[in-house]
Design a protein around this nucleic acid. Structure first.
Lengths: 234, 234
DNA sequence: GGCGATTTGTCCGTATGTATC
DNA sequence: AGATACATACGGACAAATCGC
């Protein structure tokens, strides 16, 4: 005979209650201790912990042994349009957009690069790595690859919008195709983007062409999925 | 003074041992029962379960109440391109594409649905939930939402390609806009897609219109990022 | 730095519920 | 219906990290 049988197990019901309560708290606030919470809900501490586990996995709470359990901030998501330049639509909305040049190197092209950029085998490519920040927070890492013949054109680039830089030098680009996926970050990527290693990245491979339709740039951007969405408009 | 202190907690050490053992088993094999395994390693059943939890989260094992714990096949990473019609490009490549209808329900529209589908406030929507399988393996969960006036048109849909179903009934659709992001799956999504909860999902929100340009379907697909990539062509 | 007090993390024990065969 | 497997929930105990005195 089961009087108070819920369809859901207790720890999940509890998780739902906690989820609602956590929403009312401010980011950075600490939850009451596990013993107190367990007492308040009249459940065993293990059952409470199981419920809190859910919210931790959902990224709402951060547990620290010896300190407590804090409410995490829910990050803003910036939708970015596929067609336009990276920065235009966002800065139009009042966001501060920055691009830092991390690295510039020249090397032989991979097979994938040869194919997309229509290079002959063993040609050289110029690779620029940039970090994009929105409102001061790191959001995306981008690897731009060009045919090595563009080295001189790109020599003066130091940061800021790469598309604007090229447009000012009579090489406006348009995107022609994108391949979008998601994965977990490497340790290095997580460090550069100041994100946990278990949170997903959105990766976008795009090929851009000049006005004559010749492929110019193959770019691979990897962005924090909790701050970034990719919008494709017709 | 800690003589036998391991740096790792017991359940993690155990998980490492199990990980090695599981690799030697064939996909589909069942693990010994939890009681037996706990006895073999001389740990409490809870400790063993905690260790097995790790492998389940990693996607190596699948637990089924009443049956047992099975070894999963190592997920084949076949990146999949999905353009305008979900199934066409894939079946053209020789893949077997299936769509199962999971649920059909009618309810009042959310604000987002009203906006995209151009409905008046408090209008009804029809929501169809489908599961897409590729070569027999679950890949995507999709929530299709239509204006409730389409109920009769969609009454006979039982599964298979929804776009073909509609096209055969003189309602061919074209996508006009997509919002693409990535996140971790909920427990339920992970279970339906037979994936670990820590592996990312690719989510795509698309609005489709009829030939007159009127919005008809708002679809939210969530796909295993390790099996699915989204391609956008100009 | 030491030493409690507090808080989360791990481990064990036991009992009962629920799904599958 | 019974046996077996996993799922949930209770309980106690101690370890490890953090902080303030």
């Amino acid at each position: 005979m089961h009087l108070s049988r819920q369809i859901e197990p207790l720890y999940r019901e509890l998780a739902a209650v906690l989820r609602a309560e956590v929403q009312l708290l401010a980011p950075g606030d600490y939850l009451p201790g596990e013993i107190q919470l367990a007492a308040r809900f009249a459940v065993n501490r293990h059952t409470l912990r199981r419920a809190v586990d859910e919210l931790v996995l959902e990224g709402r709470l951060l547990r620290q042994q010896g300190k407590g359990t804090r409410v995490l901030a829910r990050p803003l998501i910036y939708p970015v349009e596929a067609g336009s330049a990276y920065s235009d639509s966002l800065s139009a909305l009042g966001h501060r957009v920055e691009a830092q040049l991390l690295e510039r190197r020249q090397r032989t092209a991979t097979q994938e690069e040869c194919q997309h950029l229509q290079l002959s085998a063993a040609a050289d490519v110029l690779e620029l790595s940039t970090l994009r920040l929105l409102d001061g927070q790191p959001v995306s890492l981008i690897r731009h690859r060009f045919c090595a013949s563009r080295v001189a054109l790109l020599a003066a680039y130091r940061g800021g919008s790469l598309r604007h830089y090229l447009a000012e030098r009579d090489l406006p680009l348009t995107r022609t195709f994108s391949l979008i996926g998601a994965r977990l970050p490497s340790r290095d990527e997580a460090a550069r983007l100041l994100m946990p290693q278990h949170a997903p990245l959105l990766s976008v491979l795009t090929l851009s062409r000049d006005m004559a339709g010749r492929p110019v740039e193959l770019a691979l951007s990897t962005s924090r999925a909790d701050r970034f969405q990719y919008q494709v408009a017709p």
